Every structure is written in structure tokens, then in C-alpha cells.
Amino acid sequence: MHLSRRQIVLGALVAGTFAGTPLRAQSGRLSVVATTGMIGDAALRVGGDHVEVRSLMGAGVDPHSYRQTRTDIQAALRADIVLWHGLYLEAQMEEFLLKLGQRGTAVPVGENVPRQERIAHEDYVDKFDPHVWMVPQLWAYVVNGVRDALSAAAPERAQDFAANAAAYQAELTRLGEYAKTTLATVPPSARVLLSAHDAFGYFGAAFDFDVIGIQGISTESEAGLSRIRTLVDMLVERDVQAVFVETSVSDRNVRALVEGAAARGHAVRIGGELFSDAMGEPGSYEGTYIGMIDHNVTTIADALGGRAPERGMQGRLAAAS
């Protein structure tokens, strides 16, 4: 029987033949691999000087379609702990991550969000919309999951992890208050958020916006011509003035909508680029979770007729080009 390379790697993983040397033995710090940048950022904030964090998916990477590379596999197998989102976000990596979980080294921290707070997935039975990071109040549950996972891996550092998490939670509370206050300045009739895929469901529920994605919750779904025509009709009928592109999804469908509306005599502009499934560039303010959400809230409010500080909550957003 012929086995694919993927089957061989997964089989070896179960057998434990790729154990490697844990990186903690080399540095004294807890070696953490995170799938997404948002989780990696939380691990850095909670772990502080006690962790070394590597995020597999960088700026502009779509986690719905991402597949682990050989380098990713090696890093994950040598890590003390792997933090992944779950909720079917890393759909193409799920088999690998579940195998790691059987070894006790992988934790799906996104599933720390209570079931009653989750939105049902539109395409898959008994699965949920994974985009919980769009609301700071929900992301706080994930931060607690990171804290607990790090504490289980390094119990001697649990007190420090708890203190760091508490300080970070205070920042998330402030961010949530900024989002609520700023987005409330958008006129109710203008609270229509249309973007490339349906990543803003939690955002809409929390801040009273009608959210429309050209594609579904997963970017693996496709938008046909009938979907585009239906959305053009909606833009015209509701007099929507701005739509949004996303950093991790092609803007092709959004631009098709703008062109379709123009053909109907209705001018719609692109209100800005939002961070949906990935943060900004490493080293930038937008390359942190707080900067990511600050950018989104400020951009949406400004584009849809609300009032927002030009450089965001902390005056740190990049200047508009």
C-alpha cells in the first residue's frame, strides 16, 4: 500500500518518532508555537519573559486554507506547547493539531469561549463561527485559555502568567469601551458592514451592525454571479456608501461589487482595508491584537459617517496614505 508523505508524517507523529529536543532545554524559556498571529500576540503578552513564541501564520495569511509546512511540523513537535484556535478555523491543519493534542502538547484556546456565546457555523453542523477575536470581550476568554495552558506547561510561573493576563485584560476592557463608544457614532441607517467574507458576525452582534460577507464564514466558499447581483441590488436599495476589503482575502469580489453598483448609477467607495483573519506586519502597532482591532474600529467608523480619532484609540495607528 502506498502512503502519502502526509500520512507518513501523521503516522510518525502518533508513534512519537519526531519528538526532537524541546527548545526549553536550550533557552530556559517555555517554547510556544501559535497558529495565528492573534494567539501568538496573546501568548507573548501573558507569557512575558518566560516564553519564546513562534506564530505559524503571518500578516496577510488566510488561516482557513493554510496547510502546515515541514518546517511548521518540526517546530510544533519540538515546542513545549502548541496553541491553536480551534472552532474549525485551521480547517486544513485540524488533523495534525488533533494528533498533537493526543500527545498533550496542543491546546485549542479559541474553544475557551462558552458555547452560548458562539455563533453557529453556516456551512457545518455542530461547528461555530471561529472569528471570536473581532470582539475584545470574547477575546478575553481566549486570553484566559492561553493563561491556563501556559500555567499547566510551566506551573512554577503560573503566578506571573496570572498577573500578566490580568494587566492585558484591563487593556482589552479599554479597547472594548473604545469600540462601543466610537461605533455608536455611526448613524444607525449607515451601519452596514460589507466585506470579502463573513468574518464580522460577532462584531455585528456586539456593536449593532448588519454584517454581510460576499463569501461565507470560510474563505473556501465561493461567491457566484447571482450572489454578486443580489448584493449589488442591496447596495443600491439601501444606499450603502462604502464597502471594505480585507488584508487576507482577495479584493476581486469587492471590486466587482463596486463596478456593478457603478453600472447601476450608484457610487460606492472602498472604505478601507480591514484586518479579518490576520494582523498587520510584525513590529507595527497594527501587528498587535489591540492595534488590529483599533484599526478596524477606527476605519469602519470613519468610512461610515461616524467620529473617530484620526490615529485611533492610542494615537498610534499608521497615518492614512
Rank of each mutant, 00 (worst) to 15 (best):
S4Y: 11
G11M: 07
A12C: 14
A12S: 13
L13E: 12
V14G: 07
A15K: 15
A15W: 10
G16C: 09
T17V: 13
T17Y: 12
P22E: 10
P22Y: 10
R24K: 14
G28C: 13
L30P: 07
T36M: 03
G37T: 15
I39P: 00
R45K: 13
R45F: 03
V46K: 05
G47Q: 03
D49K: 14
V51D: 06
V53T: 14
G58S: 10
A59N: 10
Y66T: 04
R67I: 06
Q68V: 14
T71H: 08
I73K: 01
A76E: 13
V82R: 01
L83Q: 11
L83C: 12
L83Y: 10
Y88F: 12
L89K: 00
L89G: 02
F96T: 09
L97A: 12
L98H: 08
L98S: 11
Q102A: 12
Q102G: 15
V109L: 09
G110Y: 00
E111Y: 08
P114H: 09
Q116E: 15
E117M: 11
E117S: 15
A120N: 09
H121K: 04
E122R: 11
D123L: 01
D123I: 00
D126K: 08
F128H: 11
D129P: 04
H131I: 04
W133M: 05
V135G: 03
V135P: 03
P136A: 07
P136E: 01
W139V: 02
A140Y: 01
Y141H: 15
V146H: 01
R147D: 09
R147T: 08
D148F: 12
S151K: 02
E156W: 12
Q159V: 15
D160T: 15
F161L: 12
A163W: 06
L172A: 01
L175P: 01
T181K: 11
L183C: 07
V186L: 12
V186C: 09
A190Y: 04
R191S: 10
L193N: 00
F200M: 03
G201P: 06
G201D: 08
Y202H: 07
Y202L: 05
F203E: 02
I212P: 00
G213M: 01
I217M: 04
I217A: 00
I217Y: 00
T219S: 01
E220S: 15
E222W: 02
A223L: 06
A223I: 07
L225S: 11
R229I: 03
T230V: 02
L235H: 04
L235Y: 07
E237C: 08
Q241A: 13
F244E: 06
S250D: 08
A256I: 07
A256K: 12
L257Y: 02
V258F: 03
E259T: 07
R269T: 14
I270S: 07
E273R: 11
F275S: 00
F275H: 13
A278Q: 02
A278R: 07
E281M: 11
P282D: 08
E286T: 15
G287I: 07
Y289M: 06
G291F: 00
H295V: 03
V297F: 01
G305D: 13
G305K: 10
A308M: 04
A308N: 09
G312N: 05
R316S: 07
A318F: 03
A319I: 09
